[in-house]
């Protein structure tokens, strides 16, 4: 799975969860909490949406700080 495809997939989910986000600025270094403003409940929703789109399960909820870390994990675990 190409890194840029995963990023695009992630952006699609983020667009649904937080339509107000300016997705053009989202990159590997984007912080989930301080840059995207995701709270613990939104992160739970994001975890469920990622699992549903990329067909794998996180252990517990998503515990990453940056978009790049999430992408790394998806590439490693997605089918």
């Amino acid at each position: 799975m190409e890194r840029k495809d995963v990023l695009e997939g992630l952006k699609e989910i983020l667009k649904l969860i937080k339509p107000s986000l300016d997705l053009s600025t989202v990159n590997d270094d984007t912080q989930l909490i301080s840059d995207l403003g995701l709270d613990s409940l939104t992160i739970l929703l994001l975890s469920l949406a990622i699992e549903n789109k990329f067909k794998f399960k996180f252990e517990g909820t998503l515990k990453f700080n940056t978009v790049g870390e999430v992408i790394d994990h998806i590439i490693k675990n997605a089918a």
């Binding site: 409940l41 739970l44 929703l45 975890s47 469920l48 996180f58 517990g60």
Partner: peptide
Amino acid sequence: ANVKETISKFPMIRPTCLVAVPGICEI
């Protein structure tokens, strides 16, 4: 095993009722 797993299994659990805090309802 945890809240996320329980929610992700709703299509299999097919609950008729739920007891929840509003934050879970928002999710």
